[in-house]
């Protein structure tokens, strides 16, 4: 499957077909009151696979990825992450949250902690890592997102793009197996979008399993093994980015793409 996707710009796929699926959603349903926001979502993400989720606002794409680490609870169906099923069991939830990193649209850095403390907090409190080791780890990832010199500053002193890169480093410090991105560039000024996307491309090149909700079609073309199009709580269409973008088979995707392209 992956060989067919590779274009000149597309980075090599790292899907490991032999490994069990990283994420499995099986007929997941969710309601807000009487509003049916996720309808029979079934989705399987392989280890090392990079999935981009797109769709109009209100289509349920954020809700879906927030269900994967139970920031939202699904009411019907099964979600299995890294071999562990999400239930009311707190231990299962703890295990899953340790392995799944998340990056938010609004960064959500902790404003009362320095950049370094933001990154070391979870390794120290969740992984019980010695502080010194956690700081070395944090500096490693901060170097990777190209802001090691800001480590002693506070989030309020950084630009939006820098804050989002810190948020990525903070998630990576937990050494997650899976990364979830919830519209990571939507709150950024245009000139800062690229620095964040570059960081994400770097992650993809290292073979991280990723689900990314975004409208950045360039990023999808370059990175995604698969694009999932959602509308009104359903997965309408999915496939390789080139195939999906150049040859949409449903009218809903056609409408969405024309709106997106008009915006650019």
């Amino acid at each position: 499957m992956s060989a067919a996707l590779d274009t000149e710009t597309h980075i090599a796929s790292s899907i490991r077909a032999d490994a069990p699926p990283a994420i499995l959603l099986d007929k997941v349903n969710k309601w807000y009151g009487s509003m049916h926001v996720l309808r029979d979502i079934s989705l399987q993400v392989a280890t090392g696979e990079r999935v981009v989720v797109c769709g109009p606002s209100g289509s349920g794409k954020s809700t879906m990825i927030r269900c994967i680490n139970r920031l939202e609870q699904h009411q019907e169906g099964r979600i299995v992450v890294d071999g562990t099923e999400l239930t009311d069991d707190v231990r299962a939830l703890d295990a899953i949250r340790r392995e799944v990193g998340m990056v938010f649209q609004s960064f959500n850095l902790f404003p009362h902690l320095t950049i370094l403390e933001n990154c070391t907090l979870a390794p120290i409190w969740v992984r019980h890592m010695p502080k010194k080791e956690a700081e070395e780890l944090a500096m490693h990832y901060l170097t990777r997102v190209k802001i090691p010199d800001q480590a002693r500053k506070y989030p309020g002193q950084l630009s939006g793009g820098q804050q989002q890169r810190v948020a990525i480093a903070r998630a990576l410090c937990m050494k997650p197996k899976i990364m979830l991105f919830d519209e990571p560039t939507s709150a950024l000024d245009p000139e800062m979008i690229k620095e964040v996307l570059d960081t994400m491309v770097g992650l993809a090149e290292d073979g991280m399993t990723m689900i990314c909700v975004t409208h950045e079609m360039g990023f999808a073309r370059q990175v995604a093994d698969r694009v999932v199009f959602m509308d009104r709580g359903e997965v309408v269409e999915q496939g390789a980015p080139e195939q999906l973008f150049s040859n949409p088979s449903t009218e809903r995707l056609q409408t969405f793409l024309s709106q997106i392209l008009r915006g650019h």
Partner: peptide, 11 residues
Amino acid sequence: GQWEAAQALGL
């Protein structure tokens, strides 16, 4: 979002 970010980190 502060709650969510902290929970997502496994705290």
